[in-house]
């Protein structure tokens, strides 16, 4: 019997899910080595919660056209959207990650269940606010962008992407800060954004920096997921 606490089980499930996504990205959409999607946690609620944590990146292989929209993945994301509504006054990153998941569903599987607060299809599509981020100091900006790195997808326009596009130097500074502090997940998320932005200073050494993050922090599948996404964005992928 599993004696670990719910937090550990959830973070394990998030890692397993991230590893599955990475595997799909590597395999070009063929059945990943790790087996069926989603990975079985033996606990349906934990799986749905893990999808909520990983957010729209659960559908990244689908969004990048690596596979036809996987019905199982779409259904799972739709369940997560309904099971974890953002609430009346959510934290901005919660509101945005929810918006990102709903947006991914709209693009990949029009007509699938969308959030309406009550689980009804056809929920609100309005973007959440970006004011909290527009004038944030660069360390805060980068941290929040890294949390929302699932929005760093080509062709996925959003208020967050517009804020990031307006502040490439600040995001680059945040990348340096994250690497210096060995916060590999934040560094990978920031690096993923930087691959999408114009105006990133050459002296940053982004390509080598991303490889460095991979070598130092690559035991975490969530880090690898961002780096894999960044690699695909750098080389150009069909969307």
């Amino acid at each position: 019997m599993d004696q670990s606490g719910p937090t550990t089980r959830l973070s394990d499930a998030v890692r397993d899910l991230a590893a599955q996504v990475v595997s799909a990205l590597r395999s070009g959409g063929h059945s990943p080595v790790g087996g069926a999607f989603p990975p079985s946690t033996g606990d349906d609620e934990i799986t749905v919660a893990a999808v909520r944590v990983l957010g729209a990146d659960t559908l990244l292989p689908d969004a990048l056209s690596f596979r036809p929209a996987d019905p199982a993945a779409v259904a799972l994301v739709a369940r997560a959207v309904r099971a974890f509504p953002p609430g009346a006054s959510p934290a901005p990153t919660t509101a945005w990650s929810h918006w990102a998941m709903a947006g991914a569903l709209r693009r990949l599987a029009p007509g699938s269940a969308e959030p309406g607060g009550s689980g009804e299809p056809g929920g609100a599509t309005a973007e959440p606010d970006t004011a909290w981020l527009e004038y944030a100091p660069w360390p805060v900006l980068t941290h929040q962008l890294a949390v929302l790195a699932a929005l760093a997808v080509p062709g996925c326009d959003s208020g967050i992407a517009r804020v990031a596009a307006a502040r490439p130097v600040d995001v680059a500074r945040g990348f340096v800060r994250a690497v210096r502090r060995r916060d590999w997940l934040q560094a990978a998320g920031a690096g993923r954004w930087l691959t999408l932005l114009d105006g990133v200073p050459d002296t940053l050494g982004l390509g080598t920096g991303l490889e460095f993050v991979g070598l130092m922090g690559g035991t975490d599948p969530r880090v690898v997921l961002h780096l894999r996404a960044a690699g695909l964005l750098r080389t150009g992928v069909p969307v």
Partner: peptide
């Protein structure tokens, strides 16, 4: 120019 870009990070650190 290089220092203007990156010094804020090192000061913070």
């Amino acid at each position: 120019e290089y220092l203007a870009l990156w010094l804020p990070v090192w000061l913070d650190d």
